[in-house]
Simulated scan of single mutants.
Amino acid sequence: MKIVIIGGSGFVGTQLINLLSRNSDHHLLNIDKNESLEFSAITKLGDVLDKSILQSELASADIVILLAAEHKDDVSPTSLYYDVNVQGMRNTLEAMEVNNVSRIIFTSSVAIYGLDKNNPDESFPADPFNHYGKSKWQAEQVLQEWYKDHLDWNINIVRPTVIFGEGNRGNVYNLLNQIASGRFLMIGKGNNKKSMSYIGNIIAFIEFLLVEKVEGYNIYNYVDKPDFTTNDLVYHTGKVLDKKIPTVHIPYALGMLGGYGFDLLAFITRKKLNISSVRVKKFCAETQFDSTKAMNSGFVPPFAIEEGLRRMLKTEFRK
């Protein structure tokens, strides 16, 4: 099986290639605008916006795994979200059709649901609140329209929640780093639940779809259960690192006011700052999602979420 991974030089892609490469029957190719630090031998430099590269490199492919995305909170200009996430999808589908490739796994996001929803499952209406979520939803809509005229295709969409794990430097790492440092400010009461996905499980689920879900149009939320509250994360961090974690609670309104202050400072200085009103809002939001469909699909996560958290904390923060 020739598997073409588009956008595989980042954290998720690197871990996925490492997993898939253990199967000698897989022939892997990574297309990314950035060189892969671990898999340069199978990496072709190319942008998802370059149709010619996609069309030439998808020759004889059996399946495409589309990971490429603009996803950070502060991408500028915001049109990049739509160029990469939406037009990139169109370019990929057109290149697949030219090469008679009819299987795709697309990593979307639970960001399409918006914030503070009531544990949405896959049937929940989309209501994204930021450009990342809006662009991911538009990419899904491109897939929906495409499938109407390509009913023989196999399309699998994964909507993961925030992904964490050893080597990741995303939002969960930043939060755990603040907690572990002892300089942690708890905005609000800390009872808001945070759905998360451990990297070892999300890549295993993608491999499961690759092998087991070879027909039809399928959509899955991916969340590892149980959902932790922010207070739970403080507790587990202290337990794993064997240290007392002091926390100072400040009211939500005061935290948002501080976030707006950092927004103004970033605007004046033209610098990207680690704190913003958007990040405060996301920190305090209830980000809980239903993953019953994925867990009833036949997939068995290889790691409990507590084990994933323990592995990350020991690797990244134990001195």
Results as ranks from 00 to 15, higher is better:
Q15Y: 05
S102W: 06
S297Q: 01
A304S: 11
Q141M: 14
N34F: 13
K134M: 15
Y82R: 12
D73P: 13
L241M: 14
S76H: 12
S21F: 06
N130Y: 15
L254R: 08
S52Y: 09
D50F: 01
A294W: 00
D73H: 13
K193D: 10
M186C: 12
Y222N: 10
N119M: 13
W137S: 04
L257C: 12
V101R: 02
C284F: 00
Q141K: 15
Q55E: 12
L313K: 05
L19D: 02
Q138I: 06
E122H: 14
R159F: 07
G182Q: 10
I199Y: 00
P302M: 03
G200F: 06
A68L: 04
E286F: 11
N18Q: 02
A59Y: 09
E166G: 07
A111G: 15
F205W: 01
I206C: 07
L273E: 09
D152L: 13
E215T: 15
N168F: 09
I179P: 00
S52V: 14
Q288Y: 05
N85G: 10
D47S: 07
D232N: 13
A139D: 00
K136D: 03
V48T: 02
S24F: 04
I5D: 02
L151A: 12
A41K: 13
H150M: 01
S21G: 12
D290F: 04
G88P: 09
M89T: 08
L58F: 10
Y173Q: 04
V214R: 09
